[in-house]
Nucleic acid binder design. Structure first.
Lengths: 143, 143
DNA sequence: CCTCAGTTGAAAATGATTATCAATTTAACC
DNA sequence: GGTTAAATTGATAATCATTTTCAACTGAGG
């Protein structure tokens, strides 16, 4: 699975006529071995541990490539930071976000997905993607 | 109804020990008479038409007050701009966003709302608010 | 009126992200 | 292997939205 992401990225690189570089490899490894929903800054720090010479700009650029290649997805919560999450082919999930501690839980619900297409259809829309975020207090913080 | 928003804001101002100023009045009028989902910049331009002396910072500050007072709500679509929408007491709606022309349609669906609380409950969460955005192509753009 | 805390506008500061550009590296070809 | 053109990199400057700063101003109560 991790292997396949690497291969997917290689294929993307080849298809686009881009080049395979040491830096991109490092960023990819850091990304793949990291938690979901990492901010660009978090990733940058992780990358730095492996190679302190890699610059901020490279991390930004490379993460955008990952999104384009379909192995990562940009997400924006309320704060002014772009985060990236892992994309598991075909799978989609939504987020439960604790407003107290910031913990993010993922979930999936078939019924909601179906309702969404239905509603969109009523307006003549064809849904391409959606975003559903529930904000609240998580069990830990409620205690 | 527009009157009630003004009154709500007055009450908020009083409650917080803040002051009622000409500028705040101007911004409020511009906001109330404007379309939903205006960006701060749009509002700023509208405010300028009425009073070219009002600065950017004041518009920013005042819109935040509106959000605090509960008469406006911040929304963030993908672009890097904060927008504000009108809050009709007790009502909540979600967004259908055309990825081609940017048109925003609002909708409400009781079933989805209920499902959301249900799902959150399964994770032990208590939902405070949520955000649902469907991105797709609107009927006009599909023709 | 007077006073003072709250407000304002202009400009500087901030924080995240993007563009610039000279130096370097990759991939393909000879 | 050496050559070369195009892509990439890192440092830094630039940008964009938003916030802060601060001196001058103003509303509301005494």
């Amino acid at each position: 699975m991790k292997r396949s992401k690497k291969i997917l990225f290689q294929e993307f690189i080849a298809r686009k006529g881009l080049k395979s570089t040491r830096q991109r490899g490092t960023v990819l490894e850091s990304f793949l071995s990291s938690d979901n929903h990492m901010s660009t800054e978090d990733l940058y720090l992780k990358v730095r541990e492996k190679n302190p010479n890699i610059g901020y700009a490279t991390v930004y650029r490379t993460l955008k490539l990952f999104a384009e290649a379909g192995i990562a997805r940009e997400i924006h919560f309320g704060d002014g930071q772009t985060r990236y999450e892992h994309v598991a082919e075909g799978e989609h999930h939504d987020h439960l976000i604790c407003t107290r501690c910031g913990a993010v839980t993922e979930f999936e619900n078939e019924t909601i997905e179906r309702l969404q297409s239905e509603i969109a259809g009523q307006f003549g829309f064809v849904v391409e993607k959606h975003k559903l975020e529930l904000y609240g207090i998580c069990p830990k913080c409620r205690k």
